[in-house]
Simulated assay, not measured.
Amino acid sequence: MNNFFLLQPFRGKGVAQKAATQVFERFKGQWELFTNPMEQNITGQKFWRKTVSSYTTNHFEEAVGMTFDGHKMVFRFNNADR
Rank of each mutant, 00 (worst) to 15 (best):
K13A: 04
G70Q: 02
M1H: 14
D69R: 08
L33H: 10
G65Q: 00
K28G: 10
R26K: 07
M38R: 12
A16I: 07
P9Y: 07
D69G: 08
N2L: 09
K13G: 03
W48G: 05
Q17T: 15
F10G: 00
K18E: 12
F10M: 02
E61F: 11
H71P: 10
T67F: 06
L33Y: 11
H71V: 14
L6M: 12
G12Y: 02
A80Y: 05
W48D: 04
G70R: 06
R26F: 10
G29I: 01
Q45G: 06
F5G: 08
N3I: 14
E25W: 04
N79P: 11
V15C: 13
Q40M: 08
E62R: 05
Y55W: 02
D69A: 09
Q17F: 05
H59T: 13
T21K: 15
T67P: 14
M1S: 13
T43R: 00
A80Q: 12
N36E: 10
D81K: 15
S53V: 03
S53N: 02
F5L: 06
G65L: 03
T57H: 15
E25Y: 06
H71Y: 10
K13T: 02
F34S: 08
E62H: 14
Q40S: 13
K46G: 03
R76F: 01
T67L: 08
F10P: 08
L33V: 11
Q22A: 12
P9D: 15
R26V: 04
T56K: 01
N36H: 07
F47Y: 09
F4L: 07
F24E: 03
E25Q: 14
A80I: 09
A19R: 02
F10W: 15
E61P: 06
E61K: 13
L6H: 04
V52D: 00
T67Q: 07
R82A: 13
S53M: 03
H71W: 09
K46C: 03
F5W: 12
L6Y: 04
H59P: 02
V64K: 07
E25L: 12
G12H: 01
N2W: 12
K50I: 10
E62Q: 05
T35R: 02
Q22H: 11
K28W: 15
E32R: 15
S53P: 04
T56G: 01
T21A: 09
N58H: 04
D81A: 14
A20Y: 08
A16G: 15
K13W: 04
E25D: 15
F5D: 12
A20W: 11
V23N: 02
E61Q: 11
D81P: 08
F47M: 08
R76Y: 00
H71F: 09
